[in-house]
C-alpha cells in the first residue's frame, strides 16, 4: 500500500500518458486523436511536476527565512511545465484549425477515409 502512496503521482502521470497514446493509436476520429494528444500532454506535465514535488513542502518564494531549503518544492519543473503548457496550447490550436480545414476539404473527420497520399 505504501508503494502506491509514494508513487501515486508517477502512476497517474504514466497512466495519462499511456491513455493518450492509446487514443492516438486506436481512434479514427481526428478530434478524438487531438484529445488524445492533449491527454498525453497533461500526463507529461503531471510527471514533470511530480519530479520536483515534496509532500508538505512550501513554495520557494514568500516563505519565512527560517524554512530550510530541503523543505521547499523544486521550482524548476514548475517553470518547465508553464512553458510546456503554452507549447501544448499552441499545438492544440494549430491541430484544431487544421481539422477544420480538413473537414472543409474531405467532408469527414474519419482518418480511415482520408488517405490520398501513400508510399
Amino acid at each position: 500500500m505504501s508503494f502506491l502512496q509514494n508513487n501515486i503521482y508517477y502512476i497517474g502521470a504514466f497512466g495519462l500518458i499511456l491513455i493518450g497514446l492509446l487514443i492516438v493509436l486506436v481512434k479514427h476520429n481526428l478530434i478524438k486523436v487531438i484529445i488524445g494528444l492533449s491527454i498525453m500532454d497533461t500526463g507529461i506535465n503531471l510527471f514533470l511536476i511530480a519530479i520536483g514535488y515534496l509532500r508538505n513542502g512550501t513554495a520557494p518564494i514568500f516563505s519565512s527565512p527560517e524554512v530550510e531549503s530541503v523543505l521547499m518544492v523544486d521550482p524548476v519543473p514548475q517553470a518547465l511545465v508553464l512553458t510546456a503548457i503554452v507549447i501544448g496550447v499552441a499545438v492544440l490550436a494549430l491541430a484544431l484549425s487544421l481539422a477544420i480545414r480538413l473537414y472543409k476539404h474531405f467532408g469527414t473527420l474519419d482518418l480511415r477515409k482520408i488517405k490520398e497520399l501513400k508510399w
Binding site: 492516438v24 481526428l30 486523436v33 494528444l37 499545438v91 494549430l94 491541430a95 487544421l98 481539422a99 480545414r101 480538413l102 476539404h105 474531405f106 482520408i114 490520398e116 497520399l117
Partner: peptide, 12 residues
C-alpha cells in the same frame, strides 16, 4: 487537400 492531410500527419 494534400497539404492539409500531410500537415495533420506530420503534426500528430
Amino acid at each position: 487537400r494534400a497539404g492539409i492531410e500531410s500537415s495533420i500527419k506530420y503534426l500528430i
